[in-house]
């Protein structure tokens, strides 16, 4: 029989205090975070490949989004920069046109009104080859006087529409012609592109989860015996899981950063030609990058997807590893 007064006291099992445990918990997190990065660095080629695939998968929808939002910025300018023509009823005197123009200049939302008299219009028309003879055959000028109204830039398409409609109510106006149909068509195309970029984002986001999940699964397989040992000496599921979650987080973050680099390179390569094209159209339009918020979302989104992929992989595979 063991004697009761053996020196058991010396070996009384003492656990760490609460404060030490909380501090230890945070220290463990930091160690796991850095440790996971270290593990990535120890297999540079494999890690780089994984990260590059994630980077491309993230850069594609992000790049599309940049293009779409640029197209929207560009076309938003167009929709309101459209001049519209106000045709007076035939037979209205030029003086009426001048009066209307003076009145129109006072309207809010209008920055310029040009009067084109019927004679000027006919002169313009007759400059087109082939029409000259036909026009000379006419006994009288069939064209009305016209006002060309330029709305203030920055108005929305609806506001411009309302402005144009306002002219239709006026005495002596035959027709107001607002040619924004092509802008609307363009906007519809942009909208489709925007949807497509959303879908791409969803698909490739899912792809990132799968890529990270698969990489982490292989990582778990490779470290199977280590996991068994840690389980044997009392490591909790959380303790075992944490390094893998941080691994996934790193894959996502570095992939996101790489996507930022890809996008910046693409923007840089495109900005020159785009500026030349814009110059040809007489505008000073320049490609806008995604901005800091966009870049932050790219890296943050990458981190989230990476973590999620690791979470899925560890949920599925860690449980099955038990010491035997």
């Amino acid at each position: 029989m063991p004697s009761p007064d053996r020196r058991t006291g010396e070996l009384r099992r003492t656990g760490p205090g609460l404060l030490a445990r909380v501090r230890g918990y945070f220290r463990l997190h930091v160690q796991n975070l850095l440790g996971a990065l270290g593990r990535l660095a120890r297999q540079p080629v494999a890690s780089l490949l994984t990260v590059a695939v994630i980077g491309i998968a993230l850069a594609l929808p992000a790049g599309l989004d940049v293009l779409v939002s640029n197209a929207r910025t560009l076309s938003a300018g167009w929709a309101s920069a459209v001049d519209f023509s106000v045709y007076l009823e035939p037979g209205q005197p030029l003086a009426r046109a001048e009066t209307l123009a003076a009145e129109a200049r006072g309207r809010p939302g209008v920055i310029a009104v040009e009067v084109i008299s019927a004679e000027e219009a006919l002169a313009q028309l007759s400059r087109f080859a082939g029409l000259e003879a036909a026009l000379e055959a006419l006994e009288e000028n069939p064209l009305p006087h016209t006002l060309v109204v330029r709305p203030r830039p920055g108005l929305s398409a609806e506001e411009v529409g309302a402005l144009a409609a306002g002219f239709e109510q006026l005495e002596g106006i035959d027709l107001v012609q607002l040619d924004t149909a092509w802008v609307e068509r363009f906007l519809a195309i942009v909208d489709i592109a925007r949807r497509a970029s959303g879908l791409t984002l969803m698909l490739l986001g899912f792809a990132v989860i799968v890529i990270v999940g698969n990489t982490i699964r292989l990582d778990i397989e490779n470290r199977r015996s280590e996991i068994e040992v840690v389980k044997l000496i009392g490591g909790s599921d959380g303790f075992i899981r944490r390094p893998f979650l941080y691994g996934g987080l790193w894959y996502g973050v570095i992939g996101g950063l790489l996507a930022v680099v890809f996008n910046a390179t693409a923007l840089l390569a495109l900005s020159g030609p785009v500026q030349r094209l814009a110059g040809l159209y007489g505008t000073d339009f320049a490609l806008q990058g995604p901005g800091f918020a966009g870049l932050g979302m790219l890296v943050g989104g990458g981190a989230l997807l990476g973590w999620l992929g690791a979470w899925v992989a560890t949920s599925r595979h860690l449980r099955n590893i038990e010491p035997t």
Binding site: P16, A20, G24, Y25, V230, I233, G234, G235
Partner: peptide, 13 residues
Amino acid sequence: ALPLLIAGFSQRD
């Protein structure tokens, strides 16, 4: 050190 790490001991301990 692993069992102590798991149990959450301070680095000094």
